[in-house]
C-alpha cells in the first residue's frame, strides 16, 4: 500500500483538475480514474466572484484529498507565500512545490526549489517537490526535509513520456525507501505503466487525461495502466536478453529426415 506522509492510499494515480472541457467532465474523470488525490491551485479572485467557491465545493464533493500546488511561481518568496495561503484555504499541510526556472521548458529552478522546500518543511509543511531527475538535487531535497520526490519524466504538458529512463532508474536505486512519484511529461497509459514498472510508487498527471478525446475513458485507462505497471514490477520483470531463447521445449522434437 502506498503511504505518503503517513497517509495510506490504495490508488497510485494522482490527477490534476485543470484543462478539462467542463467541471462535470473533470469530476467524472476523477471518479473513473480511481484516484484519491487531486491537485488544485490558488489564483486571484474577482470582486463579487464565486467561481473559487463553486470549484472548491465541487472538489469537496468528490471525497478525495487535495494537494495544493504553487504552479506558476518563479521565485522562492512567491512559492512560499502561495504555500502558506494554500494551507489557510485548503486546510492541509501538503504542498506540491513548484518553483519554475524557465518559461519555455517550465523546468524547475532546482536551487530555488531546495531553498523553498527547506523553509516550508521547517514550518511543518509536507512538501511534494516537483523536480528534475537529477540525483544530487534529489539528495538536497531530502536533506531539506522532503520525505518524497516528484521528478519529471518530460516537460509539463509535453506528453513525450520518459526521456531519460536511466536517470529515473538511478533515483529508484539510490532511494529505495523514498516514495517516488513521476510528475509531468506522461502522455499515454503505456508511459505511466513503464515508469511504474521501474518501481516508481505513483504517477501524477493532468493534461494527458484532460485533453484526451474522451477524458473520462482516458482517466479509467490510466488507472488501469498504473495498476498494471505496479503489479508487473512486484511480480518481477524478465530482463532483456541478447539472444533468442526458445520458449517451447526442444526435447521430444520429431525427426523427419
Amino acid at each position: 500500500m502506498l503511504v505518503l506522509y503517513g497517509q495510506k492510499l490504495s490508488s497510485r494515480l494522482l490527477l490534476g483538475t485543470a484543462l478539462y472541457p467542463s467541471p462535470a467532465v473533470m469530476a467524472d474523470a476523477v471518479k473513473a480514474s480511481g484516484t484519491e488525490i487531486v491537485t488544485v491551485s490558488l489564483r486571484r479572485e474577482t470582486a463579487g466572484g464565486k467561481s473559487g467557491g463553486q470549484f472548491w465545493s465541487l472538489i469537496q464533493s468528490l471525497g478525495v484529498r487535495v494537494l495544493p500546488n504553487t504552479a506558476g511561481c518563479h521565485s522562492v518568496s512567491e512559492a512560499v507565500a502561495t504555500a502558506r495561503m494554500a494551507r489557510e484555504v485548503f486546510g492541509t499541510d501538503w504542498i506540491k512545490l513548484e518553483v519554475i526556472g524557465n518559461h519555455d521548458t517550465l523546468q524547475p529552478d532546482v536551487f530555488g526549489l531546495v531553498e523553498a522546500a527547506r523553509i516550508l518543511a521547517s514550518e511543518g509543511f509536507e512538501v511534494f517537490p516537483y523536480t528534475t531527475d537529477d540525483l544530487v538535487v534529489a539528495e538536497r531535497l531530502l536533506d531539506a526535509g522532503c520525505k518524497l520526490l516528484m521528478p519529471w519524466c518530460a516537460p509539463i504538458g509535453s506528453a513525450r513520456g520518459p526521456q531519460n529512463p536511466d536517470a529515473l532508474r538511478s533515483l529508484r536505486g539510490h532511494f529505495p525507501g523514498v516514495p517516488l512519484i513521476v510528475d509531468a511529461g506522461i502522455g499515454r497509459p503505456s508511459h505511466a505503466a513503464s515508469v511504474m514498472e521501474l518501481g516508481y510508487d505513483a504517477v501524477l498527471l493532468n493534461t494527458a487525461v484532460a485533453k484526451a478525446g474522451d477524458p473520462v475513458a482516458m482517466a479509467s485507462a490510466f488507472g488501469k495502466a498504473v495498476e498494471a505497471g505496479r503489479e508487473a514490477y512486484c511480480a518481477g520483470l524478465l530482463e532483456p536478453r541478447d539472444m533468442a531463447v526458445p520458449s517451447t521445449p526442444m526435447i521430444g522434437m520429431a525427426a523427419f529426415s
Binding site: 490534476g16 484543462l19 488544485v40 486571484r44 467561481s51 467557491g53 472538489i59
Partner: peptide, 25 residues
C-alpha cells in the same frame, strides 16, 4: 489569516492579494 483580518490595519499604498481555489495540475 481570516481570523486576523479585522485587526489587520491598512495604510496608503499597501498591496493586497485575495486568492481563491482554482483548478490546477
Amino acid at each position: 489569516q481570516a481570523k486576523e483580518r479585522d485587526r489587520c490595519w491598512l495604510t496608503e499604498g499597501d498591496r493586497i492579494e485575495i486568492l481563491s481555489p482554482m483548478k490546477g495540475g
